[in-house]
Amino acid sequence: MDNTARTINVLVIEDSEPDVYLIREALRLHVPNVAVEVVEDGEKAIRIIDEVDRDDQRPCPDILLLDLHLPRRSGEEALERFRRSPRCGQAPVLAMSSSESPKQRARAEELGASFFRKPSTLDEFLELGRIVRELVSCAPDEPGQT
């Protein structure tokens, strides 16, 4: 499959606007043909996945970026729903947090996700794009598209 030809759909659940901007910059810099869809909470994410599962024509997310510091438990509920989705349940998930603590890493592992600590320099932050590209390229293809 030609990765460059295909559109990479990225679903981002993030409520921090500055970070959303930086995530978009990083993806745009490193992932070709990327299509980013951002929601600010879990409920909205769940609605999208519902739509994806209902409508085969609706593009399916190739990766889910999830901020661990979402208010309430909406992030986790969204992840659970994402994992139950027949179309995108096998897609990689990247959990993001601004604090580097073993607790946060452990939680990400628990959710079956990779972990990204939001760094405090621009160059480091932009590395997020490269990580996403690697995760997507390693991931198995969506069953519907093979």
């Binding site: 500055p18 970070d19 601004s98 405090s120 320099t121 621009l122």
Partner: peptide
Amino acid sequence: LQEPLRHISIY
């Protein structure tokens, strides 16, 4: 405090 500081630095 870390969060906004990070944004100040990066932006």
